[in-house]
């Protein structure tokens, strides 16, 4: 490198009538000139032969493919949530004596997504998923209704929809006695009022 620079300096001296043009011409043309005349051939390192070109290209493509695959894997991982809210579908809900007539039991709302309602005849299990777009309604005891905070759907204590945009009543789950006499709620089977399934004896626990 230092050699080349000094050569350029020497060449510059005789032609220095118009300096600006000259430096330009040096930058562009002179290195080619010097190789042909004064200086021996440039170091062979600079020349990239075909074999090393392909091996570098191969490495580049390999790392590019690896990076792409790695990113695809990371994106794929993203589709599987870190936490899944999947409580067991069947659970025991204590004894019928625990339930007060006319009350809505909210103990299992958070853990299983179920309200247990006791009326004078028995107990039924209501789903806590609003039939409009799936928000979780709140039980308003003073107004004796379930009210959804998302679009204002309202349901009676029985689960029948009466206000707001919900198109159908809340769903009920299968309810029965376990062997030990406790209440057993099974969310695998659901009963929809509009299909006439609430008449099914499994949807209702006589007490």
């Amino acid at each position: 490198m230092t050699e080349n620079v000094s050569n350029k300096g020497e060449n510059e001296v005789p032609k220095s009538d118009t300096p600006a043009e000259d430096t330009d011409s040096i930058l562009k043309d002179k290195p080619a000139d010097t190789t042909s005349k004064k200086v021996p051939a440039p170091p062979p390192k600079r020349k990239v032969d075909r074999r090393s070109f392909f091996s570098w290209m191969g490495l580049a493509w390999f790392s590019f493919t690896a990076a792409t695959l790695g990113m695809a894997a990371a994106i794929g991982r993203f589709f599987f949530p870190n936490v899944l809210f999947e409580p067991p579908l069947t659970f025991k809900a204590g004894y019928p004596e625990d339930y007060i007539i006319g009350a809505v039991d909210e103990r299992f709302k958070e853990s299983f997504g179920v309200w247990l309602v006791r009326n004078s005849e028995g107990i039924f299990a209501l789903s806590t998923v609003c039939t409009h777009l799936g928000c979780t309604p709140n039980w308003l005891g003073a107004e004796a209704k379930f009210k959804c905070p998302c679009h204002g759907s309202g349901f009676y204590k029985t689960g029948i929809n009466f206000e707001g945009p919900a198109p159908r009543p809340l769903e009920r789950f299968m309810i029965s006695y376990a062997e030990d006499g406790q209440i057993l709620v099974d969310k695998n089977r659901k009963f929809q009022y509009e299909k006439g399934q609430w008449k099914d004896p499994d949807s209702f626990l006589k007490v």
Partner: peptide
Amino acid sequence: PANSPNPS
């Protein structure tokens, strides 16, 4: 999931 803010 069991608790929708009011109003949502």
